[in-house]
Design a protein around this nucleic acid. Sequence first.
DNA 1: AGATATTAGCCTATACTTAGACAATATCTT
DNA 2: AAGATATTGTCTAAGTATAGGCTAATATCT
Lengths: 191, 191
Amino acid sequence: MKIDLSKHLTLGARRTLKAFRVAMFELLSEKEFDKITVNDICEACEYPRATFYNYFDDKLDLLEYLWSHIAKNILNQLPNDEKNDDNLIKIFNLLVNFFHDNPALLANIKKNDGANSHLWHNLSGYLKHEANQLLYHSYSDSKEQNVPVELLARFYSDLVIGMLEWCLFENPTIDEKTADNYLINLLHNNF
Amino acid sequence: MKIDLSKHLTLGARRTLKAFRVAMFELLSEKEFDKITVNDICEACEYPRATFYNYFDDKLDLLEYLWSHIAKNILNQLPNDEKNDDNLIKIFNLLVNFFHDNPALLANIKKNDGANSHLWHNLSGYLKHEANQLLYHSYSDSKEQNVPVELLARFYSDLVIGMLEWCLFENPTIDEKTADNYLINLLHNNF
DNA sequence: AGATATTAGCCTATACTTAGACAATATCTT
DNA sequence: AAGATATTGTCTAAGTATAGGCTAATATCT
């Protein structure tokens, strides 16, 4: 990344970032990542290559930016007023729904199973990180402290991403209710 | 219009124009033209007001630019290799289809019937102009010269836009076949 | 294997967009 | 009808994108 996302961005910079994000997202539903060229991306969003390189080191850089943006955005849909155990289920369902809403993207991620299953590891890493952050803040002011909050958040985010991975890759036809029940059972030692 | 569309435009300028066009088009399906503010437009396409005024005098200016763009684009779909009498029917059908594909826009144009029926006159003027151009070039090298080509093109474009207006406003449920037949009958003095 | 074409990165002057402030109207509120 | 709020249209310095040209590295073709 050539620019600092934490600094203030002009409207134009935000527009440009969004355009590249959308272009990459759409291309990922059409082609394998390795088949996508910087030219493809620039053509799709109607920006010149020079602008691409003003923002990103290369297409992997853009991809990772996209993943982190997606991860943040999916989980931002959570109503952050209530902080209870349901949050984990809600997070899980938001994630599952995202992939159900974008089947072409998921198919493409699955397809790259050889040298490029790193697409999924890459994305799931960002998802886990965001879930972790969310859960950490969600529990940081709770009373039950038999276990450090950091560890708890880590345990939960591992659980939810593991569950997601199992559903998407091993059991893609599972329905929401059943999946939720499995998750609840795991959570409550209900084996 | 603050810029000269006939001159060469940079990629960025073309992107900006497109963004404003799309924003106006989408807003026209939601709100009446008079209720749309420059701020609405800029918000919709994520450009600052300053940029709007770099390109357009005001929102009417943008509207007219949009109409002329739409007119050109609808009629550009015509295969321009063959030049025969069918062209008129094809032009008519392209126009009808455009409005069938954009019912919300049409509804909004119809709604503004008081002080603002000029929305339709404005748009139909551009449509007629483009149809005229097309027909003029279509017949300019034909042999039959009992009537000047300019007059013929004018006669035809008046006919096709009149027919369109009648279909859209007086007889919105008419089917394509019937409308085509009426047009053919008018064309061949088959009253 | 050698020729040809595509792609990746980078560079620069020029042209463009931007933020934000401004006065002048218009529109809403009570 | 008066005061608050929203909108219009203009301006400028500073920030940003653009064209298009360049080399090196990879593909792709024959």
